[in-house]
């Protein structure tokens, strides 16, 4: 995204704060601590807003899929408009994704932020399930956990 690639020729540029931004790029694996901050950042952005998930890690966990502290699918917690797979994706892939996103916005396909408002309970339940655990996931209180998990679904 630096001068070598010169994304400004496509009308793309970094912004100082999420309150001025249109697109949120989530680059790389998301730990629980990061997820909390991503949600906070996302909810601060004014509408209309879009999310670009970058790299394999945000799609299915990538090489960190079995880590105890890394979420596996970002789209369960915030609505994702477009994903760029690869580990790591090339800068050209990001530029291509942003241009595709522009076309999707023109055609009206990209509107995941509306989905977030409509299905807020679903996203909120998923967020709370991982961020506000009230019982150990493994260990002696296992049965309670399974009951709670089914009740959320």
């Amino acid at each position: 995204m630096t001068s070598r690639w010169d994304v400004e020729r496509f009308g793309i540029g970094p912004m100082a704060t999420p309150r001025q931004a249109d697109v949120l790029l989530v680059t790389g694996y998301v730990s629980l601590k990061t997820l909390k901050r991503i949600i906070r950042t996302y909810e601060q952005m004014p509408e209309p807003k879009w999310v670009l998930a970058f790299g394999s890690c945000t799609v299915n966990g990538g090489i960190y899929w079995d880590s105890y502290n890394t979420i596996t699918n970002l789209a369960e917690y915030i609505p994702v408009d477009i994903t760029v797979s690869g580990c790591m994706p090339r800068p050209e892939a990001v530029m291509d994704a942003l241009q595709t996103l522009m076309k999707m916005i023109q055609s009206g396909e990209a509107g995941a932020y509306k989905k977030y408002k409509e299905n807020y309970e679903y996203y909120k339940a998923n967020q709370d399930r991982v961020l506000r655990k009230t019982y150990p996931i493994l260990g002696e209180k296992l049965i309670q956990n399974e009951e709670a998990a089914t009740s959320i679904e």
Binding site: S56, V59, N60, G61, W65, D66, S67, Y68, T70, I71, T72, N73, E76, R129, V130, K133, I137, L138, N145, A149
Partner: peptide
Amino acid sequence: TREFSIRLFDAKPNG
């Protein structure tokens, strides 16, 4: 850690 990830994050082997 794998079992933990599968239970909490619904992780799937090989994506």
